[in-house]
Write a protein that binds this DNA or RNA. Structure first.
Lengths: 255, 255
DNA sequence: CGATTGCTTGAGTGTCATCAACTAGAGTGG
DNA sequence: CCACTCTAGTTGATGACACTCAAGCAATCG
């Protein structure tokens, strides 16, 4: 399909892996300089996506994996009954598109939640390159493995957690991801809407809203719109890890 | 059913990839014969696990990935509050342990649901081998990618489906996996208990039981204990794919 | 400004979890 | 062979949590 209006010259834009602030988090971990160069050469920096732009559609032929440089991407698929189900949010330094490798088709769509810049990594060339750079290949195995782990955590969340725990888990998870990139883990701006959060967590939008206000009333967070501050880290951590209060077994004080 | 008790000596048992009935489904796809040989040499057939035996524990150092030859394995993790959450069932020809690559530690435990034989594939050696056999490396990428896809389907199931749809999805999914191995896709024996099914699907055990009886009353399946026959494939398919009956399309509805 | 979009709040309802009792089958032991 | 126990599964009654429907509010926008 369309998009990819690449610039006049689909040229290498300014930044390269070497001086990219994300380099420690992204692919090149533990590669020799010369190897980073070779990787650099196959990566295309594309021009920014605007909010709502689609990076690829469910069903498109798989060509590339993508690294987010700034902004946020969501992946989702459309069920047979026409509903959207969000399967992931991708922040800077994170890789998406890996699920397309298997059938050579993207099984999900990817859309920008805000203005977003990405690096495109043509997979065929990455595969080639990994033939010659074992550490790159191993890095790819690791990245895919991590994705599998993360997804399984998500399954636990969806299968076993209640609404409070789900929302707390998401906020703590996002905080941790901000932290990795050098930002505050307790104070940040959500790039997704309440509707997207609720969809991702398997809740109704009203439920997310209610949980948020409840958290505020209890002093766990402050939230004004998309600006979130976690003000009681300990309680939020307890919720996210599903540690129920069994303290006073005298009666059932609810969580 | 089957169960191949092969020889006494724990090492290189009779079967090898070449004559293994699963070879078309397992790793060796599209490898040259000579390459299959080399793969063969690093694979260890281990002596059968009995029901309840643990293949590896959550937290163990990651050494190998495993292919199921006969029987069934479940993977699960223990949440901080001590509950078990099953994250997958593995049938013959399927690979498990991939989630351990990332941190060099298994993030889940794996336990046999019945007498089960497996092939152990030391990952370090597999990585080495894949340095020299690009098609093997690519095959591994594909396998991991497929796992990511499957897990995402599971997320949709957990996040968006109701009890009927969840159970129908599981039964249809298991059927499809039996079919791939040459068995009936509509008539098979569950190797997991109701409790394991309910845990996996994020339901209460009683709910699974009720759904099953409801399906029987409607004539969708017949079930006696663990023996299942799907008798109304169409309806079950509809449920599994979440096609709701919007009978009267008089109005807007779909998007 | 009305209109639209995103979010919050309220009221009523339904699905599914919980608690509990009961059944069926398998294994044990006298 | 017949209690006895244990486990797995089914069925019923009840209620909670989260969904749905609906209204209201705030901010943005054409």
């Amino acid at each position: 399909m369309s998009l990819t209006h690449n610039t006049k010259s689909k040229n290498k834009l300014t930044s390269q892996c070497q001086n990219c602030s994300l380099s420690a988090l992204c692919l090149p971990i533990s590669l020799a300089n010369s190897d980073v160069d070779r990787l650099d050469q196959i990566i295309e920096r594309k021009k920014p996506l605007k909010k709502g732009d689609v990076l690829f559609h469910q069903g498109d032929t798989f060509e590339s994996i993508y690294a987010v440089r700034t902004g946020t991407i969501k992946t989702f698929n459309i069920t047979d009954s026409g509903e959207e189900q969000i399967t992931g949010f991708y922040c800077p330094s994170e890789l998406l598109g890996l699920s397309g490798i298997d059938k050579n088709i993207y099984p999900v769509s990817a859309k920008a939640l805000e203005t977003t810049t990405i690096c495109e990594i043509p997979f065929a060339r990455l595969e080639e390159l990994s033939d010659n750079i074992p550490s790159l290949k191993n890095q790819l195995f690791k990245i895919m493995s991590r994705k599998i782990c993360d997804d399984q955590q998500m399954m636990v969340l969806l299968g076993k957690k209640n609404a409070d725990e789900k929302v707390a888990s998401l906020l703590m998870n996002l905080g941790a991801r901000f932290k990795r990139r050098g930002y505050s883990s307790v104070s940040f701006r959500l790039s997704m809407s309440r509707g997207e959060i609720s969809n991702y967590l398997g809740l109704a939008i009203e439920t997310v809203s209610r949980v948020m206000t409840r958290f505020q009333q209890k002093g766990f967070i402050t939230a004004q719109g998309k600006e979130i501050s976690i003000t009681n880290l300990e309680e939020m951590q307890k919720l996210a890890n599903m540690i129920k209060d069994y303290d006073q077994p005298n009666k059932d004080t609810i969580k």
